[in-house]
Design a protein around this nucleic acid. Structure first.
Lengths: 160, 160
DNA sequence: CAGAGAATTCACAAATCTCTGAAAGTTCTA
DNA sequence: TAGAACTTTCAGAGATTTGTGAATTCTCTG
């Protein structure tokens, strides 16, 4: 099987996994197309052709992926079309995003504690929740930062 | 507003958030009902009444939550009904589950690298992905373990 | 600044998902 | 082991989500 075909299948496979994890199916397909493509970037038209979807669907997907920090619009000299590419540091952004969820969980625990009080079975349950998410938030943020530094250091002399 | 009402609302609110994050809506509602309830555990009938859903829906939700380690079936002496309760250590289980996703992402990166090779734009993109997930997997596992220890230590003399 | 080339929006159609209600299965007890 | 008390399974109805295609808006360029 040729390289393009293998990459295309890998892209679809990962998209399916991401979809099961909660991401919109088309959004996931656009993301993985940009991740596994052999081109530097792709136009909306490229994505329509590659994935057999309408331009409307591409537009929607792109609108979701950009705020997540996963892809970016790239100025394309000599072309009036928008080009999109997978962002460097995308994974760290994605993980940070998930961190926000940790904070939300902590808040939800606090809200329950405010209502139920610290004592009793409910209090104990919610207290464990609050402690856990406080700990994870605290630990995970520096972890992502340290990777950013580590990665930046490795690539200072070879920017894209 | 009374305590029960506040807890019920907190439960529904968190369920909604979790649903937006990809969890099935009913599954999330069952989970949060068990999390915020003032009882030690709830029967399927309790959940039907509390959430206004059918027993079939409860059965399905429970079937999803148990393998995630979020809830457990509790032997109920004197009652023929199954009782369910939110598990101690549920959050750590959930986080471990998400760790499995990190491994999957690493594998997906490797698969792409096998097809595309290490060089070229695709190789570089996938390499960053592989490195990131390798790092996160490596770091996150001990983090969860350390919390488990920390929490166990705090609660050795006060088991549930 | 007119017009062509693209991207975005939106109403609707299509596909998917999810719950219900009933039937079937399971497990405990008398 | 018969039967009652629950739970699970499943087909189908209903609700929700999501993509299409056309209309609209935006943005460059000549």
């Amino acid at each position: 099987m040729d390289t393009d075909q293998r990459l295309r299948e890998a892209a679809e496979k990962l998209a399916l996994t991401l979809a099961q994890g909660g991401m919109q199916k088309t959004t996931a397909r656009v993301m993985t197309a940009l991740l596994y493509t052999r081109q530097e970037s792709m136009t909306a038209a490229d994505l329509c052709a590659e994935l057999s979807i309408s331009s409307g669907a591409v537009s929607t997907a792109v609108k979701q992926l950009i705020p997540l920090g996963l892809i970016e619009r790239v100025p394309a000299p000599g072309s009036r079309r928008d080009h999109y590419r997978f962002r460097q540091g995308a994974w760290a952004s994605l993980m940070s995003q998930q961190n926000a969820m940790l904070a939300t969980m902590g808040d939800a625990a606090q809200e329950g504690l405010d209502a139920a009080g610290e004592d009793g079975i409910t209090g104990r349950r919610l207290h464990e929740m609050k402690d856990f998410y406080a700990y994870m938030t605290e630990q995970l943020i520096p972890l992502i930062d340290s990777w950013r530094e580590r990665y930046a250091a490795q690539h200072t002399d070879a920017p894209r």
